[in-house]
Design a protein around this nucleic acid. Structure first.
Lengths: 260, 260
DNA sequence: AATTAATGCTGGCTATTGAACGGAAAAATG
DNA sequence: CATTTTTCCGTTCAATAGCCAGCATTAATT
């Protein structure tokens, strides 16, 4: 049995039973408790479980049924790889802006053990998720709830963003292209992301492989405005070159499988 | 059974029964009384219970907010009665402000079949809940996420509220008293509620029976600033009189006998 | 062969629980 | 109302179970 299979089974069990016990899992899988504990460590880091003496309980904070489960399921693995890199780029005490993308939600989850973060976001989901982290300052941009999403948009949100300045903006996009730069499909989202990038010292763009070479409807900014570009695996040589030309630091997971 | 599970169950029991007895819990869980007491110690440290001789009672102190996950479960029936009345007071096409109380969440749920509402709220939960209703305009106040709750507070939220004007403000409170007026336990919440009331043509206060005659820390407004007072059952004669004196229209569930 | 991830093992450390006991609070008794 | 009895509480101590960190081993990959 693969380690990842076991981990997923434990998660399924956890969701079903609401809690698991280390000793029982050791029996069930015939491995040592240390191994089980390491699985639980990972689940905890992903924000899915909360370890406790003797076992772990389901993290109920994100168990609230969200109306929009659609995009969240897609490409989960890529998003988690990306979230791990984000975790390396963020330090305790940082002031951050996070957009309302599903990748940003994973990023926020992975940041939960950082201390004293200040997060400004237009994502209702991130608000909900970060609400129970002690010691964080969480600011909502306000604004209009965009139809069919959990993103706050509009001029109130943009205004609010413009009245702050942060260390790092962490946002995602729909397309990334050498010539067209960073693009998005929705003007409302674009305004938010643009404002966030302009309000931050460092610009960090998250883009999984499917975004590379794509051009979407509206432009957020040029490639050379970006400081970090985070993706889940090593891009082609042409992209490495393009990023170097544009002065963009490329970060990707060293551990992810190349394809399939 | 994990220790944390037992502790959570005791808390749930406490919520439900309002009090627990050490000896009964010892029976129920098959542990010694010392263990139960230690659980109760922890609950007391968290501000959720108050130990007494032989057991513990639920801490319903007026000036402390329970964690939102707990509070949500309390008094569900009253809140639903109140939500029904709210439903009668709101018309299709209304512009509303809703605060971040759990009663307001129920009110929002009961409004789901109304058409073309515009809702301004500082509640993350209402945002989440209303997101999937087609045809509504939903605006978030933005602001800081208040520790231990899903309420957005602070001057950004207040500013945002002040830049709008709506038909009806629907808010709840911690205390309502003839002389002290409408009061709340938290200044941050009070600022929001006050601003909402001032930005609305009609003021609707929701207050279940437990709030009547209570006085909490900060004042939101006087009784005579209120247009409608909604509660779950008929109050005492003295309250009927007090509302009439203050020019407040009292609305309650018609399950009791009274000429209307 | 070298690297890396996964797992197991060891030993020191911590958390949880139960038992014991003196003292405090409530209840019973006169 | 004072005294006795009972019940309950808090503290301490010990035992056990579980935890963590580091290192060794194995298996898979390059």
């Amino acid at each position: 049995m693969l380690a990842i299979e076991r981990k997923n089974e434990i998660l399924a069990l956890l969701q079903q039973e609401k809690s698991v016990i280390v000793a029982e899992l050791r029996e069930r899988y015939g491995v040592t408790e240390e191994t089980i504990r390491r699985d639980l460590d990972k689940l905890e880091k992903e924000g899915l479980a909360r370890k406790t003496y003797g076992g772990a309980v389901l993290n109920e904070s994100l168990n609230t049924d969200l109306p929009f489960k659609i995009r969240k399921r897609a490409n989960v693995e890529s998003k988690q790889y990306i979230a791990e890199i984000i975790n390396e780029l963020v330090e305790d005490g940082d002031n951050l802006m996070l957009d309302a993308s599903s990748t940003a939600v994973y990023a926020a989850k992975s940041l939960k053990h950082k201390k004293n973060l200040t997060i400004i976001t237009n994502s209702v989901e991130i608000l909900l998720d970060a609400a129970d982290v002690a010691g964080w300052r969480i600011l909502s941009t306000g604004g209009s709830l965009k139809e069919g999403s959990l993103a706050l948009v509009g001029y109130q949100a943009v205004n609010m963003i413009q009245s702050y300045h942060v260390d790092k903006a962490i946002i995602s996009c729909k397309g990334i292209d050498k010539h067209a730069g960073i693009t998005d499909s929705s003007e409302l989202d674009m305004q938010i992301k643009k404002a966030m990038l302009e309000a931050a010292n460092q610009s960090i763009i998250m883009a999984d492989r499917s975004k590379w070479g794509k051009v979407a409807f509206t432009k957020i900014c040029d490639l050379n405005h970006i400081d970090y570009l985070v993706t889940e695996s090593e891009p082609d040589a042409q992209w490495l070159q393009a990023c170097e030309d544009a002065g963009v630091t490329l970060r990707y997971s060293q551990t992810s499988m190349e394809d399939k």
